[in-house]
Amino acid sequence: MKILVCISNVPDTTTKIKFTDKQTRFDPTGVQWIINPWDELALSRSVDLKEDSSNPVSEITVINVGTSETEPTLRKCLAIGADKAIRIDSEPKDAFFTAQQIANYVQKESFEFVVFGIESGDYNGSSVGGMVAEILGVPSVSSVSDIKFNGSSATIERDVDGGKEYMQVQGTTVIVVQKGFAKEPRIPNMRGIMMARQKPLEVLAAIDSELLTEIIEFNLPEPKAKVKMIDPDNLQELVALLSKEAKVL
């Protein structure tokens, strides 16, 4: 059983966000790039599944649509335990474009599971996973928090309003995972880091695709008003403010 984990390369979560070129582009100066946290959970759990030999997982590939600058992120994926990395050589221009690239690769290979994190830390699109499923015409399960194998059949746990549903699937399936899918991201070990340089990182040309959307401009939120401190011995004041000033009660 082969798993494809789709990786976004995003700024570290503590990055101070700035824009450049008249607010049209994210300013990458001094930014530390990381594996998108949800994608890292997706990969970590996939590696856990592969390491447990009672599961049928045999190979994990990671894929990223990005320029050569994303390769350190892909090599970190290899260090964490992916067997192989694919980079589609293009800026990820919009969600549909990115989905076309990934779907095209999936069509050429065969994967039982194509795994995405629920959103990317930069554009917060939550789109590519569902789009890939639709292009391929396969089922997708979203907000997935667990997966269990019983022989070759998998049961997927998804969050629904107020609880959980358990889904069984056959054939290629897209799963979009959230927190809980892995407890925490794996830290690569020395052996993994050493082996990362020997594992294949293949670069493929992008295919043509139309763009359905484009970003015109970025803006930062308005600065927030200063906090109003309340005397801990006069909490009625807070209640009054919440009710009359903020009107949230």
Partner: peptide, 24 residues
């Protein structure tokens, strides 16, 4: 809605209709 349901359905519909999708 920009919740689990919207995140699951809207991108798929975007592909079917070739219609641009903006989330959130």
């Amino acid at each position: 809605p920009d919740n689990n349901t919207g995140k699951a359905l809207a991108p798929r519909l975007s592909v079917r209709l070739r219609a641009g999708f903006v989330s959130g």
